[in-house]
């Protein structure tokens, strides 16, 4: 009973927070709601007897990824951005499409008879099992992910550190409109200067 109560509480909170993420005009508050939604999912992971994943979720998602996104928001977003139009022209079509997909997948989920007659308890040393699995059955994906992380680290550093290069486009019309032809190309101008 307590399990059901906790599930419904955190499920409702997660859905409300994720709706706030996609609908809020202020992107900084969107990121804050994302942190809340991730925390609700960490609580659901605890309900699923995955305590280690829940801790990893709080540490890496909330502690690292959300903070990284908040840094990017602070470095790039202007104060008056929230008064601009936030949604594109698909804002009525996309929810219909998403609802259709939702109905489709839910139909499949409900129709399949999952064999969950009796729920056996999880093993006690689940962390040891994860470690053993990572270094035995999943050793090749583990190595690939390690190399991917290294490549992503080097690539992100290389992409972000481009101060000595000339920007491709230098001037944007200040009216806030970004239609065709309003972004001036400065490439040729720079070439002429040289």
């Amino acid at each position: 009973m307590a399990h059901a109560l906790m599930f419904y509480l955190f499920a409702a909170l997660a859905i409300a927070a994720s709706l706030a993420v996609i609908l809020h005009r202020n992107i900084f508050k969107s990121a804050t709601f994302l942190a809340g939604m991730l925390f609700c999912l960490a609580a659901l992971f605890v309900l699923l007897d995955a305590e280690f994943i829940a801790v990893v979720q709080v540490l890496i998602y909330i502690g690292a990824i959300t903070i990284l996104i908040v840094f990017a928001i602070m470095l790039t977003t202007k104060i008056n951005d929230e008064h601009k139009e936030q949604f594109n022209s698909q804002k009525f079509l996309a929810p219909i499409l998403a609802l259709g997909l939702l109905g489709l997948i839910l139909t499949i989920v409900v129709k399949i008879q999952w064999t969950t007659a009796e729920i056996s308890p999880v093993p006690s040393d689940i962390l040891g099992l994860i470690g053993t699995a990572l270094l035995s059955d999943f050793i090749f994906p583990f190595d690939v992910v390690s190399i991917l992380l290294l490549v992503a680290l080097i690539g992100a550093t290389y992409i972000a550190k481009q101060e000595d290069r000339k920007p491709l486009v230098t001037e944007v019309d200040e009216t806030g409109e970004h239609g065709d032809g309003k972004v001036k190309h400065a490439l040729h101008a720079e070439e002429v200067e040289h």
Binding site: I15, I22, I69, A72, Q86, A98
Partner: peptide
Amino acid sequence: ILFAIGMTGVLIRRSVLSMLLSIEI
């Protein structure tokens, strides 16, 4: 449900950062 919400967010937002937040969902 969360997947549908995240997909809607990717499709309807104009800012790249908002789309990133939706991808995390």
